[in-house]
Nucleic acid binder design. Structure first.
Lengths: 121, 121
DNA sequence: GCGATTCGTTACGGTTCCGTATCATGTTTT
DNA sequence: AAAACATGATACGGAACCGTAACGAATCGC
């Protein structure tokens, strides 16, 4: 069964969860970079620069930069594809998995503490 | 009743809805700016620079810059408080309300099309 | 009235992002 | 082997963000 949200619930969740995530993420991860990170951790591998760029509809330098940034944070790891050495395979890391898990926890927590959608009496 | 999300649902929703929102928002609205916008439209007025900065735990220049950016986009409007002319009251706009409504629609749509949380059989 | 406070903005130096174009490297094609 | 193609990284100029610090304007307190 899919999830049925009311407008005030949807926006309320977005507001509170994004606010809470900012404490963890800091101001220096872009929305795009967050999407890239989630894609890497939610979608089945292998992930390449070109594949991510196509899937997320951004240019390749956007991916390269994101991998630089998130690589420095230890959230992802680059590995050359030995079968076609032009490719770079993006690997998950333990640290990254933990990070994504925390993001999920925040969303779940904020969703749970969401006030009932009120058509006010 | 509050909303109970499974980890894969929470993260899947975040991924797909953020990705879909990026088409509307563009890459040039920060996560912080989005939170500011939502706060203005979800929380009861009046909103001031100082109040937003305190509530969202950011410095005042962050608010000023966000208001510049979103003001240029027509999403919010600044009005001097005539009762204490040091204050700036941030007002909503029709365009901004429409914009926020679209964000909500995206979240609702993505939540509805979320695959059932599967403990795979 | 006059100093102290408060409010929002601006200025600064630094960092990162953006998109476009180019590049080096590797693979495929002929 | 040489030309064509594919992949990811880099270079570039421009724009926006960051936090800290200073600033002008308005109000409050004495």
């Amino acid at each position: 069964m899919s999830i049925d949200l009311k407008p005030s619930q949807a926006l309320g969740l977005w507001h509170s969860a994004t606010l809470a995530q900012l404490e963890l993420v800091g101001p220096d991860l872009t929305m795009r970079q967050l999407v890239i990170l989630l894609h890497i951790y939610l979608k089945p591998p292998p992930h390449t620069v070109r594949g991510l760029a196509a899937k997320l509809d951004v240019t390749k330098p956007v991916i390269t930069r994101a991998l630089d940034t998130m690589g420095n944070m230890g959230l992802v790891r680059r590995v050359r594809d030995e079968r076609d050495r032009r490719n770079v395979i993006i690997k998950r890391t333990v640290e990254g998995a933990l990070f994504v898990e925390k993001l999920g926890d925040i969303i779940i927590r904020e969703a749970a503490s969401l006030p009932r959608d009120g058509v006010m009496p």
